[in-house]
Design a binder for these strands. Structure first.
Lengths: 269, 269
DNA sequence: GTGCGACGTTGAACGCGTTCAAGGCGGCGA
DNA sequence: TCGCCGCCTTGAACGCGTTCAACGTCGCAC
């Protein structure tokens, strides 16, 4: 084990152990430190601020890896090839990434970001729940599209329950929360009226449905994955209808039953 | 590549094909030549019929592998260990099995058989659809239970779309068909009345739901996987209600919509 | 300047799944 | 009896992901 996903934080580490024992000179004479901004971006001083040397190498390795993954596929890309192409020793890649799988997290983050951006359009201008949901789902397939072959080769890695790459794992929790937030926006920005308890659960349920779509997509060998497109177009109206039905008094008991099931299944881990 | 699941062969294997064609001395004295029968089949000769030597080795390797998988887990069991324990060379294992993954298929077949047997009880005596479904699902968890840790370690292998171990793959088609048949029995042996088109699709849909339960089960770390039990208990009444609703005239259009979606998604592969 | 300690980097080495050329071995036709 | 052919078996070897002891290298305290 080692570091993990240096979020921001100039320099590194972070993750589980919050505080850095390493001095933190903090406010030296010069250099205003720029706490919230990107750590690199050499404002005027051209010569490399040494603390970032590692981060530079890290990025270099990650970029190289993702490029090779795209060009050759995941399994066909060897760690030796990544290291050679990046001009470092193979052991160096393992200094920054715990394993080959961990390189994928960089891909996740990137796609997640692109999904948000691609969803911006429909979320900004559309008020209808069904249209918003459909737009977001199609946007997700759009941004994942170029990586379909690649995704299929590393999907197994994500499916392993104990793997940090599993969408249900603790390590994936940031990007998962981000994705669930996206579906929360789908709901809250729409004019749909919901049962209150359902409203609490729905974002996660929609994310779960999205995972199902992804599962289907990964197995979808039709040209352009058009079967997945049809699945989305067909399933969204059904969800829309179901969600609206949840407000009808006669169906309240049924809704309660479903919500109780979700709650009971979630308990004790 | 080499053979694959030699159907053939008296001696053993069994699984799908129930009857053993071995000789069957039957008409003792004269032996009427049995023209269409297999040419070998040593009537009384005790010494090993050479044709079966290979099959013996195959079984030895499979048994050894499954035992070690159970004892140590999938990834922790090496091919070298299997070979050593079985007293053969490592290359010999690859003569009978294309890869380490292919050893799992033997496990699949065994569990599938056990599932059928365990479901026998409830399918024989129960007429209520919900009770039958619930019984079959619980029986499935029962027989898989002892292998929960093992299953988690090889689950990734099954999830890879291109893997022969994928439940959706062509290679898994025999055990998949068998499982779907199990759910067809659940329906046909019950007193539930169904829309005709739904009846055609329902077995596969129930199998799909079963795959979902398995997916949940693999990730379920609660003691004894009791969350999975609760999931089954909660989801079966919902399915039962939904299925009965399908006969109500007002809801026919909705049902047609769902079935049309399934059909459209299935087209072109 | 000198030494120190942490960060960064190296490449040989390990154990794994898998492949392959080579060689038994045993029954059958001559 | 001999030789052949095809099933079966072998273990060294390959390339992979991963580990690790060792070695720079640089900023800082003295």
């Amino acid at each position: 084990m080692r570091r993990w996903r240096t979020t921001v934080t100039h320099v590194r580490i972070a993750a589980t152990e919050p505080d850095e024992p390493t001095a933190e000179p903090d406010a030296p004479t010069a250099e205003p430190d720029a706490p919230t901004a990107e750590p690199d971006a050499p404002a005027a001083g051209e010569d490399k601020p040494r603390r970032q040397r590692g981060e530079q190498t890290r990025q270099l390795i990650l970029e190289t890896a993702l490029r090779l993954f795209r060009e050759r596929g995941y399994t066909e890309t060897t760690m030796r090839a990544i290291a050679k192409e990046a001009g470092v020793a193979v052991g160096n890649a393992y200094y920054y990434f715990d394993s080959k799988e961990h390189l994928i997290q960089g891909f996740y983050d990137r796609v997640q970001l692109a999904h948000r951006a691609a969803a911006e359009g429909v979320l900004g201008g559309e008020k209808e729940f069904a249209a918003r949901l459909k737009g977001v789902l199609h946007a997700g397939i759009d941004v994942n599209g170029p990586y379909h072959a690649f995704a299929a080769t590393f999907f197994k890695t994500a499916a392993e329950p104990s793997s940090p790459m599993s969408p249900f794992s603790r390590e994936s929790s940031p990007s998962r929360e981000s994705a669930i937030g996206l579906f929360r926006e789908v709901i809250e920005g729409s004019n749909v009226k919901l049962d209150r308890d359902l409203q609490k659960e729905l974002p996660e349920l929609l994310w779960l449905a999205w995972m199902g779509v992804i599962l289907f997509w990964v197995h979808d060998k039709s040209p352009g994955q058009r079967r997945t497109r049809r699945l989305i177009d067909g399933v969204v109206p059904l969800i829309d209808r179901l969600v609206r039905l949840s407000r009808i008094p006669v169906l309240k008991p049924a809704l309660r039953q479903v919500l109780a099931l979700i709650d009971s299944v979630r308990r004790d881990d």
